[in-house]
Amino acid sequence: MELLNQISENLQNGFDEKVAALTKEAVEKQIQPEEILNNGLVAGMNIIGRKFKNHEIFLPDVLLAARAMNCAMEVLKPLLIKEGIPIRGKVVIGSVKDDLHDIGKNLVAILLEGAGFEIIDLGNDVPADKFIRVAREENADVIGMSALLTTTMPVMKKVVDLVKDEGLYGKIKIIVGGAPVSKEYALEIGADAYSFDGANAVETVESFFPKRGS
């Protein structure tokens, strides 16, 4: 459909206001919100993801597209909720206790949101028990943790241990990342996955859920 293609193309170019306006237009033309989401917005983000992976575009371009996606979601979200259309998945994310670095965590949150996930961003300096408490309250599917210091990495293990203690291990997936974190460390502490960058985090979290969009 032409309008959905326009949404996808403008999103890929990072034209946030245009994408929001076209999304409103699509709603007014009675196109189903789920169709706008999947065949306009998510379709555009999927192309962005592919281009980024192939080094045809770079992170700032992806972030512009993500902003456009978020502007459109402000229009669509109330309608999706109203129609009871399930979100793709809910992710609780944060930088662990005593770690004040949040750029990497922010990028992952933005890219996941752009890929259609609901994000509960706890910010930085997040205590281990808060990850669990919020994940439980929000019925989250994934906990994402970031650490940029070797001194704060042990908090990740604490969270995994708490998830096990609460009987949520396997029900809530745990993904970790950050400069000093490695795949080996993730395995060692019992996390479900490790991601080396934002795009990889999106791919990894997507692998936990059924695929959506073209």
Partner: peptide, 8 residues
Amino acid sequence: GDYAPGYM
């Protein structure tokens, strides 16, 4: 929400 300028 100005992610790209923030990141840069």
